[in-house]
Simulated assay, not measured.
Amino acid sequence: MRHDHDAGGGHTSSRRTFIRASSMGMTAAALAAAGAASAAAHPTTAVQQARAQGRPLAVTPACDGHETPAATEGPLFKPESPERGNVVTPGISGVRLDLSGVVYDTACAPVTGALIEFWQCDQNGDYDTSGFALRGHQYTDNRGAFRLQTIIPRDYWGRWGNRAPHIHTQVQAPGGPVLITQLYFPDGTQAYGRNFAALNAQDRLRNSACTITLSAPQDGRYTGAFDFVIKTTV
């Protein structure tokens, strides 16, 4: 069953105990950022360019200090998702994606223990509203890194028109404000026989600054990179 996916709803701080200021009992994800080499990708930050070119990264690379652009949360966020880095559950097929990156503050320092929530639709353009397929949260490790194993989502038709494939995220430093945004895919992405360039062009909610850097597909799988820059104080 398809759902009317998008609405202009904003974040309500009380709907999830989302600000975990003390982070007691928090288990940091011991996951490292994976490299991404691409000829067809479109890097948007210096660190993504380094990954795409296969160059080593400094612990704190140069950055412009601008926060990752925010976006609407939409109506389908679910609180209390499982803590996990792999959100592909039984019954989910689709083009696999291994996404990694680093969360930085506006001074370009990695943020340890940042909480990242991911949720998205499946290969048919449907969100799981009864369970937690393709939903999960994790914490950045001591280098500010995260890794997500998922699939490339399908486009779908909602109240905002035809939505390009995207992944919803909420990112938060311990005790800091929540950044709500959506991640998109390069025009040359190949999945489900869809024209990503056309889908991206007609999606009026899409922000090209939030485009994932993708490697060329290998064995039908993609490797991607995206780095977040967030504020750490309210």
Rank of each mutant, 00 (worst) to 15 (best):
L31S: 14
W157P: 02
G136R: 04
G176I: 05
A164C: 07
I180S: 09
G8F: 11
G131M: 08
T106Y: 04
G65I: 14
R20A: 07
I19H: 00
D187M: 05
S93G: 14
D219N: 13
T233A: 15
V102G: 08
I19S: 10
A198L: 07
A36L: 14
A39I: 04
A145G: 11
G224A: 01
T60I: 08
G10K: 06
Y184G: 10
V103Q: 06
L134C: 07
I180A: 10
F196Q: 04
A225D: 15
P177E: 10
Y192S: 09
L183Y: 02
T12F: 11
N162T: 07
G35S: 15
N124H: 14
A133G: 05
N142V: 11
M24C: 03
A197F: 01
A32P: 01
A36N: 13
I180R: 03
N124T: 13
L179Q: 15
C210Y: 01
G8N: 10
A109H: 13
A216M: 10
V88S: 11
P165H: 14
C108E: 14
T89R: 15
F18C: 01
R55C: 10
G144M: 11
S93F: 12
G144S: 10
A71G: 04
A32K: 04
H137N: 06
D141C: 05
D187G: 01
T44Q: 15
T44S: 14
L31P: 04
I167P: 00
H66F: 07
Q170N: 12
D126E: 05
A33T: 12
P110V: 08
R159D: 15
H168S: 13
L57I: 04
M1W: 03
E80R: 05
Q149K: 13
P90D: 14
W157N: 10
R20S: 04
L99M: 14
T140Y: 07
K231D: 05
A37S: 14
A37N: 15
N142G: 03
Y156C: 11
